[in-house]
């Protein structure tokens, strides 16, 4: 860029807008001059102090995001039985609405009455507390009201949270995001791909037209484990050979499995299967392995 001579350059004149009153340079808010005190230049002195606080908060914040992953439960399912809990900053309202004089036939009081008065007062505080006095200990009414609402906030939130924890234990249910994290951990230990990557590749049925397929239908296993062994009601039997061997499967047919599955041996018998058929069925199920099919 040619270094043109500065002097010849035409001086840029900033044309003021006639309607805008020309301000007298910087806006010097009256307060500072009234309080000479030890004031400090903002840039770079005070800004540096302020940003030291910013840096500390940022480090804490990032450590928090790294150590505590954001919770994620299971996909929304309207028929799921979940104890509904709003976010923590709504708990006080949530708990407050459970009280008799805030619900039932007093619901108007509960939803409009008191909250509107409370938040309305907070919104219009400068017009309600109009004295010149600013020190809180010299403004008993305003400060008392605020302390009262702070106390009730803390009490209601705490009460709602402990009640929720109590209900969880009573129902013996674990919050979903913890369940999901445990499952993800188990999957990772068992070496399965993490959830959300490829859903489990479909394990194919090993020799599909084996006569055992008829036993499987006759003995009514099909009604819980599905026509394609993918499970309907009962768990999927695809790749069951990886989990249980023949004897274990025979035992399961004879005695049932951890309380959920009843014993199916008698059902098989009166469906006309012989003991040898059931044995063959168990053997065929034991062959259902994930990598066996090539």
């Amino acid at each position: 860029m040619a270094h043109n001579d500065k002097s010849k350059q035409e001086k840029v004149v900033f044309v003021g807008d006639s309607r805008v009153r020309r301000g007298n340079g910087f806006v010097t808010p009256p307060d500072y001059t009234a309080y000479p005190g030890k004031s400090e230049a903002f840039i770079p002195n005070f800004l540096l102090k302020e940003w030291m606080v910013g840096v500390v908060v940022l480090v804490g914040f990032l450590v928090l995001t790294i150590s505590e992953p954001a919770p994620l439960g299971f996909p929304a399912d309207p028929s799921a039985s979940v104890i509904p809990m709003p976010d923590w900053y709504f708990l006080f309202l949530y708990q407050y609405l459970k009280y008799p004089y805030a619900s039932g036939n007093y619901v108007i009081l509960g939803t409009i009455g008191i909250p509107t008065v409370a938040f309305g007062a907070l919104l219009l505080a400068p017009f309600l507390d109009t004295s010149k006095e600013r020190r809180f200990y010299k403004r008993p009414i305003a400060s008392a009201l605020m302390f009262l609402s702070l106390a009730s906030l803390v009490y209601l939130t705490n009460f709602a949270w402990t009640h929720y924890k109590h209900e969880l234990e009573k129902a013996g249910v674990e919050p979903e995001h913890i369940q999901r994290e445990e499952q993800a951990l188990e999957n990772r230990l068992a070496g399965l791909p993490p959830a959300g990557s490829e859903p489990q590749a479909e394990i194919a049925i090993v020799d599909k037209d084996d006569p055992a397929m008829e036993f499987y239908t006759k003995a009514t296993c099909i009604s819980c484990h599905g026509a394609d062994l993918k499970g309907s009601g009962g768990p999927s039997l695809r790749g069951i050979g990886d989990k249980h061997d023949k004897e274990a499967i025979l035992a399961i047919i004879k005695e049932g499995y951890n309380g959920k599955m009843p014993e199916m041996y008698t059902a098989a018998m009166n469906a006309g299967l012989t003991d040898e058929d059931v044995d063959h069925l168990a053997e065929w199920l034991a062959k259902q392995k994930a990598e066996a099919v090539e």
Binding site: T217, G226, A227, D228
Partner: peptide, 11 residues
């Protein structure tokens, strides 16, 4: 047919 049997036939 039971529902799953119908499904099986269709399959």
């Amino acid at each position: 047919e039971a529902p799953h049997e119908a499904a099986e036939r269709l399959e």
